[in-house]
Design a protein around this nucleic acid. Structure first.
Lengths: 401, 401
DNA sequence: CGACTAAGTTCAATCTCTTAACTTACTTGC
DNA sequence: GCAAGTAAGTTAAGAGATTGAACTTAGTCG
């Protein structure tokens, strides 16, 4: 099951058509800043008149702004169009195992302000209250009357029931069946717009694809390697959709079996990927206590042989995991994030080497799937959640466009 | 990358809107045969007037037919609408490792005629010529002037380049980079409509979802266990899309690694799922020659201990593979097909038992993902390819609606 | 048999896109 | 420096699709 915005009725009236065309114009400018009305007309297969009217209304509502006059190629020069980053704000947040991350960002994905608050795991209620307080701070700064708030997206470390906003499980927080937005809402009645929540890796994946400009990959997979290991897959460059699965379990790659009959995982099964590569398995292998920050504890010890061996083995497992994703979903691009990427080459080299050595075996092509490592992925999921808010407005039933 | 029909321009004019509404009406009747115009109006959020006009034109063009008068609930009784199965025909074919399968079927997926022709692997050219000849037979019977041909879909045993109709690789046929439709076309100039080709498991998955009526699962995964092992994932009950991957490698689950450092696979990597469960690995383990039919050879020997052991081990690997798919893509429903399902319990019980025992570990829910085994999947892929033709016409840019 | 209810049709009104003419603004050539 | 040329963007009349309301049709119920 994937995000389907509204799509309940694929039919529509004239008003629907008008919104469709407005959103197509907005999407084109979002993807290719600086387009002229004439460019849009040719790319969207609309007439100049329709585009003119659509742009007019989007300018008026503060979605677009006119930019510089472009170089003429013989005739009247076109007027560049850009997203108007001044009139709207999106809020995104991530509830992580070790802290809260918040961003306020613009239509183009530019982060206006971000905040990272360390926090030891506590109850959903306390977490919600603290998050709401921090969000209030951001709202005070950025809702100055000049900007309209489009909504809030919250990323959470566990599977979310598709269709309804319930966090099914967050093993590393000890949470189960939490309606987190409902906990947040009483403290944030002022925050208007669309509210949504999603799994952290899925939000991250979405943001990495959605806020990009220029040539957009057809699909993108984000692999989040932290305390646990998860992934998110986004497909469709025109209308990016996040694959959720019927129970929200899509992307629970930490619990794919890599070693039949291997070690026991906390899920009860044996040989899960997480028993080989994850924050908790590395802690277990090296005897690092929960209270210590894993990365801070390990960075000074990277030369120790047992650390190197542990990370190399974890890295090899990660490489296999990436290859398996390549042969299962074959994304156009893979992005690797999460706190473990900060461990650098001792963990990542074995993974990337294995992936590169084996990814072309089947087809024998020279075409390589780009694999990008994000060293600092602190705000990636929070920003991705904000991206999901924007997408739900542009593609959804909202009448803001 | 997934099938996107056209979707190049998400914008549209009045003509586009009209087609969208026609296709929404057709889809509703397809999914729920016997709907009345009034039902359609309420479900599609259209007015009675619009639905009336749309149904009129679909009746006229032979897509729909009026059925019985429904029971009244106090007022004028509604007239049931059904697909008109008399006026169109879809052709589907599968090129398998050991033979050709062909079907002619109706809009509702009913198979008018099917044919299975055994064939030892040969060149693409010879295969295409034979397939064309067999298709001519079907065309003679079913294109009697009363039916219009909507097109031909061909399913092939290997990854297909997304966007362009090229079979990248068919290891078990020894083919590489074959434009199979181009080989077929000279022999079938009479076959009008949409031509397309796809991977066998993907076509099968699509057909299993698309031709279903009533409650449609949000997604469906078809696992094809034969000489090799592959899968196809279809997502979206409204607009089902097949996930292809950027290189067409999505669903190449036979080459996911299940046993790091395990046996060498023909792809050159070690520990691929196919080294544990596949027609070829079972042949290798039991010393069954290529010339023999694997199923015919094994069915009389199912009581032999070494056969039982081999099949049990293969089944266990298949179970892990299914669980990994559950935790990677979490389809709403899994369908297991391919020739190996004919081996029955000795292979399947270990697989299904492992899957059932472990699928709910993470969430602890009682919700089970339905897993259906198709014992005779001979024509599933061919019929699925025909379904893809229909979908490309209903959702695509065609002007037949 | 008449009142009631709901399905389906008809038609003027409405709304959006389109076509085509027009204006604007810059480049090019003389 | 100026006129011709070219392309961007705007305007207004026209075409086409959906809508809403009134109407017709075809049953049920009392």
């Amino acid at each position: 099951m994937s995000t389907s915005y509204q799509q309940q009725h694929k039919a529509g009236d004239l008003h629907f058509l008008k919104r469709l065309n407005r959103s197509a114009i907005l999407e084109l400018v979002r993807r290719t800043p600086g387009l002229t009305r004439a460019d849009i007309a040719s790319q969207a297969q609309l007439t100049k008149a329709t585009v003119g009217a659509g742009v007019q209304s989007l300018l008026h509502q503060g979605w677009l702004r006119e930019g510089e006059l472009l170089k003429s190629s013989g005739g009247r020069p076109g007027r560049a169009l850009h997203l108007n980053d001044e009139r709207h704000v999106l809020f995104g947040a991530e509830v992580g195992v070790h802290g809260l991350r918040l961003v306020a960002c613009t239509l183009s994905g530019q982060v206006l302000e971000s905040h990272h608050e360390h926090l030891v795991p506590t109850t959903p209620e306390v977490t919600a209250e603290l998050l709401a307080e921090l969000l209030h701070g951001l709202m005070r700064t950025h809702l100055d009357g000049n900007r309209r708030c489009l909504g809030l997206g919250v990323a959470l470390p566990g599977p979310i029931a598709p269709g309804k906003p319930v966090l099914r499980l967050a093993p590393n927080l000890g949470w189960r069946d939490i309606r987190f937005l409902d906990l947040l809402r009483p403290h944030l009645s002022r925050l208007e717009g669309t509210w949504l929540m999603d799994n952290e890796a899925k939000s991250a994946a979405f943001g990495e694809l959605y806020f990009r400009t220029g040539n957009i990959p057809e699909s993108l997979m984000y692999v989040s390697a932290g305390t646990g290991i998860g992934s998110g897959m986004v497909e469709g460059s025109h209308l990016p959709l996040v694959a959720r699965g019927i129970q929200g379990l899509a992307g629970e790659i930490g619990h794919t079996v890599l070693q039949p009959g291997g070690l026991y995982c906390h899920c009860g099964n044996r040989g899960c990927a997480e028993t080989l590569v994850s924050g908790w398995s590395i802690r277990a292998a090296l005897g690092i206590a929960e209270e210590e920050d894993l990365i801070e504890a390990l960075l000074p010890r990277l030369n120790e042989p047992d650390v190197q061996t542990t990370l190399r083995r974890a890295g090899e497992a990660l490489g296999i995991l990436l290859l398996n994703l390549h042969h299962t979903q074959n994304p156009s691009e893979i992005v690797l994030g999460g706190s473990l990427t900060q461990l650098g080459a001792p963990l990542l080299s074995p993974a990337l080497d294995y992936f590169k050595a084996n990814q072309s075996r089947l087809l024998g092509t020279t075409q390589q799937v780009p694999l990008r490592v994000i060293e600092d992925s602190t705000f990636v999921a929070a920003r991705g959640a904000a991206a999901q808010v924007l997408a739900s407005i542009i593609h959804g039933p909202s009448d803001l466009i």
